[in-house]
Design a protein around this nucleic acid. Structure first.
Lengths: 201, 201
DNA sequence: TAGCTTACTACACGTCTGTGTAGCGGAAAG
DNA sequence: CTTTCCGCTACACAGACGTGTAGTAAGCTA
């Protein structure tokens, strides 16, 4: 289907797919080479090592995503994600979780955008740093937990329709408070009690 | 520190720790055995295989968590988590993401509790199934993305104080709407456009 | 034509992994 | 005392992994 690409590009694409699917350690050089229909030696020839390949994938995914539009680091919009972009996101997040510096940089940028976004709202937030981090992490989780989501929804979230259901749900989630003021106050009290007890010890 | 336990228990504890930290595939039998200060053969003697060990850990973690209190599947309370329970949660979620049936069962139970919780609220939700799944996944993400969270907050989230900051932030997040009605309407429109275009194709 | 670089393959090496086997020592049962 | 079981160790095995090396064919430059 994509065999009109350079071998190098085919390797890169196959790597991103397999890395995203099985994790960095889970995908072997040989599997990637086979998926790209080349010898494992060629992979090594082009990228030097597995880490070299991973770096190249990181860089490429990041540049592709920023090229298409900064929206992947944007904070509140989750719409307009083609399966392709979805894959790139999923790869980058996976790579991030497996300790990629490029991914960490992306995460930092997400946090930065998060703070900018937070400044435009009038939300009451006790700890902006923690708040932004939590929102960022939760946003990413929609990509990380893809398998579990698909299982719960009964169909692959890569399916645009299923993806749409997920977006709809996040919209419902973010447009109204999930817990009442009383519940929040109660939880806050419990939290205070916790930190108080900890200081005492 | 915990050397007054049975060797079997020490192996189990070490396995849960290393599995949670490095993933199922990432933690080797030899590493686990060394951490438990036993030979790798003993591990095999007690648990039969690596998958046997993982099953035992799954079962034990699940039973411990349900014994301590069902709150790990409960929907809205994230407080009162000791580092120990935190670890068990983190392990079980990791195991789930790596394809454990026990973990999948736990996830299903989370969804079930989620539906029960949703019924007690008066939230406006278009797609309860998707909604509950999204909330469950996002809740779990606080455990999965532990490293990233720690990085963003500048200190390990296992630290009770840091963990408290995170809980505080989730509380802020869940007790107020993140986006305005206009923004929500706008996003909904974009979503409708998306699904309309997809039906047309 | 000759020389050199580049895309590409085949194959071997050392290491690490999960697993299998043989055996040791102590405690309990006869 | 002997037998038997159980906790436990040491060691060997096959396979998979990332990596290294040698070599082939094609295209470019002079």
């Amino acid at each position: 289907m994509s065999s009109d690409l350079t071998a190098r590009a085919r390797i890169r694409d196959a790597a991103i797919l397999l890395f995203a699917e099985r994790g960095i350690d889970g995908a072997t050089i040989r599997d990637i080479a086979q998926a790209a229909d080349v010898s494992s030696g060629l992979l090594r020839h082009h990228f030097g090592s597995k880490e070299g390949l991973r770096d190249a994938c990181d860089e490429w995914a990041l540049s592709e995503l920023t090229k298409i539009g900064g929206q992947f680091t944007e904070f509140n919009t989750l719409d307009g994600l083609t399966p392709r972009i979805q894959l790139l996101q999923r790869y980058l997040i996976r790579s991030t979780m497996d300790g990629s510096p490029t991914g960490a940089a992306m995460f930092d940028r997400m946090l930065e955008y998060g703070h900018q976004w937070l400044a435009t709202t009038d939300l009451k937030v006790a700890d902006p740093e923690a708040f932004v981090a939590v929102v960022a992490v939760m946003k990413m989780s929609l990509f990380t937990m893809r398998d579990l989501m698909s299982r719960a929804l009964g169909s692959d979230v890569t399916e645009p329709a299923t993806w749409g259901r997920m977006l709809q749900a996040t919209l419902d989630l973010f447009s109204q408070p999930l817990i009442t003021e009383e519940q929040a106050a109660q939880a806050r009290a419990a939290l205070d009690r916790l930190s108080a007890g900890e200081e005492a010890s």
